[in-house]
Design a protein around this nucleic acid. Structure first.
Lengths: 234, 234
DNA sequence: ACCTGAACACCGTTCAAGT
DNA sequence: ACCTGAACACCGTTCAAGT
């Protein structure tokens, strides 16, 4: 970092510059930003209290001034990511489309951070941004006339398929070899004894067709269209 | 263990009895049985190579003669559990019911072992028993006339909701306090500002009603009935 | 009052050295 | 040939001791 005077930028004198970066004071926000950078680079397994601390030029113990545990750090990290999902005003006539959009956008927000979504499976989300999303989903379902009991089930299960899809997608991504690995599994399926696994053999190709996006939309459509049908009939 | 002669049981002479139990030789099967016992008692986080080895009276390094990594041990553990799911003959006229039963039974098998299902999210299942289940699901979907492409998506996503539901259920279970904890969250929802969270406040009670079973069946019905509707119309 | 080095009780995995 | 103690490079969390 350097001081700015009008448009002229002068370097900080060397005897003033601290050894490692500007060494701003710690804060929950700085810890979270650093943690997210590590997750983006190395995935959730690469995130440790020690590594976050190291990146901030301090020791792991110092993080416990801002987060009572790694779990709490992850909860807040997740809520920060959820906070990037737009929550538009409810248009009752478009509740089906809006409900789908909400979950497509949630999925996109989570997918932007590797397998961070795994952290969402460890706790009931109660962060402010998660609540905002749940509130929006409930508003849409009730606007569409889905009975409260089913609306309650639906918010739970729709969030579940989003998170599970992202976790699954991150796993496919992390399987390094990537497409190579999938090809080997496809070939294995094709090579199975056809008398025992006729359908697996016949569908070896089909099973690995289709992007993750299409697969997700397929399950989202089944669920939301099913809810719409359920709302249409009393 | 003791020797048996006809109906008379005599104890093994003390100078013949080894110090710690019968100390059978190690085997992959014995390692898996021990690992499953630990998961059942303490959950997946309690399962470590060191603990399994300790329970078998040996060191962690010895397990690597049978499993190249912890990941492989988990894969085989999972396939062993999946092996308890019955796979009946396909009755084409009952494909919808049979498809639901298959996933209800898979869920039950996984739920019997705490959060072991989490291990299913780390790999594409290719164990023999997993393949048997996938084959059966494909057979039912095709018997019902579901187009191959959708059948492929469906086996993936149905397995996904089963695993995710079990993972979610285990998390609720593990939240020690149990019902106590849920009550506190419900109270928190009810206490939110009604102008910002009208639906969350109004539905605080409803949101926590219903057993996990009902919630799962709700999502399973939406998906399978949706598939049936899809098969009925070309 | 705030921060942190070192310690505690763990991990998965490897490998040299033993039987 | 098989097995394993010890080591390596890590964990999350605590706490006494420092500034």
């Amino acid at each position: 970092m350097s001081s700015t005077i009008a448009a002229v930028t002068v370097p900080v004198p060397p005897w003033r510059a601290p050894k490692k970066a500007a060494r701003q004071p710690l804060s929950a926000d700085r810890v979270l930003a650093t943690a997210l950078r590590i997750v983006d680079r190395e995935g959730l397994d690469g995130l440790s209290m020690r590594r976050v601390a190291q990146a901030l030029g301090t020791g792991a113990a110092s993080l416990y001034a801002y987060f009572s545990s790694k779990e709490e750090l992850l909860e807040q990290l997740l809520d920060r990511v959820i906070g990037t999902v737009p929550v538009p005003a409810v248009e009752p006539g478009r509740w089906v489309e809006q409900l789908k959009e909400l979950h497509i956008n949630s999925r996109a927000a989570l997918r932007a951070h590797r397998d961070l979504a795994r952290a969402a499976q460890a706790n009931i989300p109660v962060g402010p941004n998660s609540l905002r999303l749940t509130e929006h989903a409930l508003a849409l379902l009730r606007a569409g006339g889905v009975p409260d009991r089913y609306a309650a089930y639906a918010v739970d299960k729709l969030a579940m398929i989003v998170v599970a899809d992202v976790v699954e997608g991150a796993m496919y991504q992390a399987q390094e070899h990537g497409a190579d690995d999938l090809k080997r599994i496809r070939d294995y399926f094709a090579s199975l004894p056809p008398d025992q696994f006729p359908n697996l053999v016949a569908m070896a190709d089909t099973l690995f067709e289709g992007e993750g996006d299409q697969r997700f939309l397929f399950s989202l459509d089944l669920m939301v269209d099913g809810l719409a049908a359920l709302a249409a009939r009393p």
